[in-house]
Design a protein around this nucleic acid. Structure first.
Length: 803
RNA sequence: GCCGGUGUGUCGGAAUUGGCAGACGAUGCAGACUCAAAAUCUGUUGCUCGCAAGGGCGUGUGGGUUCGAGUCCCACCACCGGCACCA
């Protein structure tokens, strides 16, 4: 059979769509299976070869589940709000809506040419008002539940995007998207209280099946720490509260450090004698970005506050207070007690400013030479009633004491910050809030949703940090829905992460106008059974969407506490030179070209074969030919088919083993070895010179996961079964037929292989050893020696230990 | 510094979790077909000694456990990813 991939692929893509065979069933009694890939941002560049790696992988899982009788939902849509589209629109003076439309059309045709078994009838688009109506609705619920609030604060400002960024979007001091410089800017911003969910976002990781590296990264980002808050009084009678994870070392606190922005400084400004010096330091610190402040970690700076001291609550010692930018306002209480003997940062600072270092935990070297920070082995000293206790016991005891005396309490802190949720750009969901001079922030009535984006003259971001929407006075000026006074709409829009924080719910019931999805659909399809996506979203989309989902769970909109039962992650496809694919390196592979030259089936098979799915792997323009040959050889099987409707005995165990292996490997994301097993099998088949009808039927079914078009062609051409092979019943293996009668085992002498012998599978130790000894090659190595030990591992080897 | 990961031929990568290292594919080499090339097919392709039969060495490094280690333990090294003055 000739293999003309273009006509074959078009033919079957059309047939699948016309027959709707990949549509998820409504009201099905079958068990459901919901597979999800991260919906793409339809960029102007079109599809990247990286996209199909993830899509094909879950396509294979989806196809297998479908063949195994599941009602599979494998949907697709467009995460279409976002800056690149807006920037393109500005540059070329077209509406972002038009840009999006064009890009979506291109992406859609590219995806369809790959033969992915998406249910296109459920296609969604985050920029569709019918969709973002519900994004806005969720925002209103967050607002009504006190989880969305507006606050004046220092935020990350991308100088190039002219827009604020969430903490999660700042990478190495630069913008996650464009890499430009990020500076601090004080602005009034909408915030979402993700911190309210910090503990649950960690704890509920136990409920889900995620890769360890994803869990670790999320935990790390949320940064839970347990310790205590301790109240120090000052000589002025004020209270200065510190947070510490080492309350056990309280007796060793020899000074205190507060951040330059700490409010107590203003309060005590009349008492502080060196206010000029303090102000100068504050000034200098404020000019630095967060990045600069943390980057110059090598050298500690600070100023001692003259005129006020703090009193250690456990021993009434008077200790000095410093300001230093190594203490952050945004974490804990913005103030610390410094224990230089047992904290390296405090130690560095103490050495620089010549402050006393008092050892309170014994077990290390001289604390005058280095801080001793080991909690596991230390024993408390110089600490009154804590002396002799281990660090853990001392922590418990001191917290008890502090709570008794009202001078402190146990406290848990998180590194996670609330989510900065507003953006000063056009192409995003409008925030449905009205600012009324009398009533404050008034939510739009739900009946007014969607609040559609108005058409504006210019999408250009403004330099004063306002959204382009601010210029649309007709749209901005409204009456307050509560009191009727003149009021203004919020002009900032939502970040790109908003629409993607709940899109997987919409797929369950994409055309519903009365709810984000019906309770029945949510109940049937939740949770997502298998979600594959990139590691780069671990502390962005993946975290945000877990937060939203937990909120929706709390207000009883969704039935499960976690959105995704299982998450996996693919590795990147690198350029042929081993570097990241990029235009500037000139190593970009265009998927259209690959599909054109080799066909979608080859592209799919190769992307699954080129390496371990979870690791990065470089593209190879020569290796892909091997996959093309493989598919040609598969098509060629039709020419050597016999009408025998059995598996031939000599291939029986190989077939059963291959069915087993392909099934298991696919479930474990080991697509490369699944394909290798099929390649081995086809080699074995060609070695016999023919294939039976039954064998071809099984082989075609297995192939349909990877090369669905070619498989359909073979299936229909040789009339191997009814309908489409894509929804035929997946072959079942028989465990008892996976074993062969005889097996080749290795014979070792002193652990070195000297010969190989063929033995019956069930041979016992005695039999195997005597056969082994019968080998001439083996005899040469044991003659004249004492046999100390004989080991037999069934089906594997015999090892004779001789001295 | 902390957390996570990786290290195997010329290359991408396998190895049932302690049992034949290098499956499968790619490259390279040799041959068949061809006027020739491409395609296809056959053989071969870790290093090394040997004419050969055959032997020795080999999974980042150094030790250890074991009849047996790519796999387990200890100590290192290199690279990749994330976090990073978080008290």
């Amino acid at each position: 059979m000739k293999y003309e991939h273009k006509s074959i692929e078009q033919k079957w893509q059309k047939a699948w769509e016309e027959n709707g065979i990949f549509h998820a069933e409504e009201n099905s009694t079958k068990p459901k299976f919901y597979t999800l890939i991260e919906f793409p941002y339809p960029s102007g560049q079109g599809l990247h070869v990286g996209h199909p790696r993830s899509y094909t992988a879950l396509d294979i899982i989806s196809r297998k589940k479908r063949m195994q009788g599941y009602n599979v939902l494998y949907p697709i849509g467009w995460d279409a709000f976002g800056l690149p589209t807006e920037n393109f629109a500005i540059k070329n003076h077209v509406h972002p809506k038009e840009v999006t439309k064009k890009n979506v059309a291109r992406f859609k045709s590219q995806l369809q040419s790959l033969g992915l078994s998406f249910d296109w009838s459920r296609e969604i688009n985050t920029t569709d008002p019918k969709y973002y109506k519900w994004t806005q609705w969720i925002f209103l619920q967050l607002f009504k539940n006190g989880l969305a609030y507006k606050k004046e604060m220092a935020v990350n400002w991308c100088t190039s995007c002219k827009c604020v960024l969430a903490n999660e979007e700042v990478v190495n001091g630069g913008c996650e998207r464009c890499g430009s410089e990020v500076v601090r800017k004080v602005k009034s911003q909408w915030m979402l209280k993700i911190t309210e969910y910090a503990d649950r976002l960690i704890k509920d990781l136990d409920l889900v099946d995620y890769p360890e590296r994803v869990k670790a990264q999320q935990k790390n980002w949320i940064g839970k720490s347990t310790g205590a808050e301790v109240d120090f009084t000052t000589t002025t009678g004020d209270t200065l509260t510190v947070y510490t994870t080492r309350p056990d070392t309280l007796f060793g606190a020899t000074y205190m450090v507060i951040s330059p922005e700490h409010p107590i400084i203003e309060k005590l400004s009349s008492v502080i004698k060196n206010m000029d010096e303090i102000r100068a330091y504050q000034e200098a610190a404020s000019k630095k970005s967060d990045f600069e402040r943390t980057e110059v970690a090598k050298d500690k700076t600070g100023v001692k506050i003259e005129g006020v001291e703090a009193i250690n609550p456990v021993n009434n010692t008077q200790i000095p207070i410093f300001i230093s930018d190594y203490v952050l306002v945004s974490y804990g209480t913005g103030a610390i007690m410094a224990v230089p003997a047992h904290d390296t940062r405090d130690w560095d600072f103490a050495k620089k400013f010549n402050l006393p270092i008092i050892e309170v935990v014994k077990g290390g070297e001289d604390v005058q030479k280095a801080a001793f920070t080991d909690c596991a082995t230390g024993i408390l000293v110089n600490s009154d009633y804590l002396d002799g206790l281990s660090v853990d016991d001392a922590k418990k005891k001191i917290i008890e004491k502090l709570e008794e005396t009202g001078k402190g309490h146990a406290k848990v802190n998180f590194k996670l910050r609330d989510w900065v949720f507003s953006r000063q750009r056009y192409w995003g969901e409008p925030i449905p809030i009205i600012h009324c001079p009398c009533c404050g922030f008034v939510p739009l009535d739900e009946s007014e949703l969607p609040l559609e984006l108005p058409d504006v003259e210019s999408y250009e971001p403004t330099d004063n940090g306002e959204s382009p929407l601010a210029l649309m006075t007709d749209w901005v000026n409204v009456k307050c829905p509560k009191c009727g006074a003149d009021a203004k709409r919020e002009t900032d829009t939502m970040p790109q992460w908003a629409g993607s924080s709940w899109y997987f719910l919409r797929y369950m019931d994409p055309h519903n106008d009365n709810a984000l999805a019906s309770p029945e659909a949510l109940k049937y399809w939740s949770p997502v059974d298998w979600y594959n996506g990139g590691m780069e979203h671990t502390t962005l989309h993946l975290l945000y969407s877990r937060f939203w989902h937990k909120f929706l769970y709390d207000i009883k909109v969704v039935p499960t506490p976690e959105p995704y039962a299982k998450r996996t992650s693919h590795g990147m496809i690198l350029g042929e030179d081993g570097g990241k694919m990029s235009k500037s390196r000139g190593n970009v592979v265009n998927p259209d070209e690959i599909v054109d030259i080799y066909g979608a089936d080859t592209m799919r098979t190769f992307e699954m074969f080129l390496g371990d799915f979870e690791n990065a792997a470089p593209w190879s323009s020569s290796s892909i030919k091997g996959c093309r040959r493989f598919i040609e050889r598969f098509m060629g099987l039709t020419d050597i088919m016999t009408e025998n409707n059995e598996i031939r005995p000599e291939l029986e165990s190989t077939f059963h083993k291959t069915i087993k292996k392909v099934g298991e490997d696919v479930e474990n994301l080991k697509f490369n070895t699944a394909i290798a097993a099929l390649m081995s099998l086809i080699n074995d088949i060609y070695a016999t010179g023919s294939i039976t009808r039954k064998e071809l039927e099984i082989f075609t079914k297995l192939m349909s996961l990877f090369a669905p078009h070619a498989a359909e062609e073979v299936w229909s051409e040789r009339k191997l079964g009814k309908g489409f092979v894509s929804v035929a019943e997946f072959p079942v293996y028989d465990e008892s037929k996976c074993v062969e009668n005889t097996v080749e085992i290795a014979v070792q002498v002193n652990g070195k292989i000297r010969d190989k012998i063929v033995v019956p599978v069930d041979i016992d130790q005695q039999g195997a050893v005597s056969l082994a000894k019968a080998s001439e090659k083996v005899a040469a190595f044991i003659n004249g020696k004492n046999i100390v030990k004989e080991i037999y591992v069934k089906g594997k080897l015999v090892n004779i230990v001789a001295k």
